[in-house]
Amino acid sequence: MLETLKLTKRFNGHVAVNDLNLLIKPGEVFALLGPNGAGKTTTINLLLGFLTPDAGEARVNGASVATDPIAARRQIAYIPEQVMLYPRFTGVENLDYFSTLGGRRHTREELLALLKRAGLPAEAADRRVGTYSKGMRQKVGIALALATEAKALLLDEPTSGLDPAASHEFSLLLRKLAGQGVAVLMATHDLFRAREDATRIGILLDGKLAGDYATNDIKHVDLEKLYLKHLRA
């Protein structure tokens, strides 16, 4: 479960996240839409404890990010827009390294199976990451999310730059994870993916949640129009 309570963050007087209240339950996929600078990435950074809030609190599965940061982070899997890995390590070595950092040790067979589940071709697993495409690195990131067995998943523009097939594979995995009870927060500009994957859609403007819709309730609404309506309001 991901939770923010009156979460506020200012940068040099500019309010990036303003009194934000969010509750993402296990199994929910919450797509956070908003223009550049709306505060989407800042919200994710606050949930990861990478930023210290000026007010309010962020919690992951009940653990306060401010007071129990390690416990909070250990329940999170995070996939940034660009999954940056060690280019001198192979895919399997990168997965081994980062998952062990998170306190989970896997055998080589388990790591290979995780990479396979994430959609990475078997022949690529033992190749150095320096030769990987962005999509392949993203898949290592997904494998890492699977390896950590996290209760919450934070995604920052996860499908940006992925080809449609890779994007589709990613969606399938995301739904599978949600089906296993993972709470997902996905910051994105991709309205199509948001409608396809999310169970709830939030529109963030100037750090405030301007709209919060259950995807089922807006099934017949043009999401682009709704989004633009909020922007122009």
């Binding site: 990478f50 660009q82 940056m84 980062f98």
Partner: peptide
Amino acid sequence: ESGTLRLALAQGVAPMQW
């Protein structure tokens, strides 16, 4: 600089220990 630090810290490792 490269961004691997964010991924490492996101795993819940104590930074000093790492």
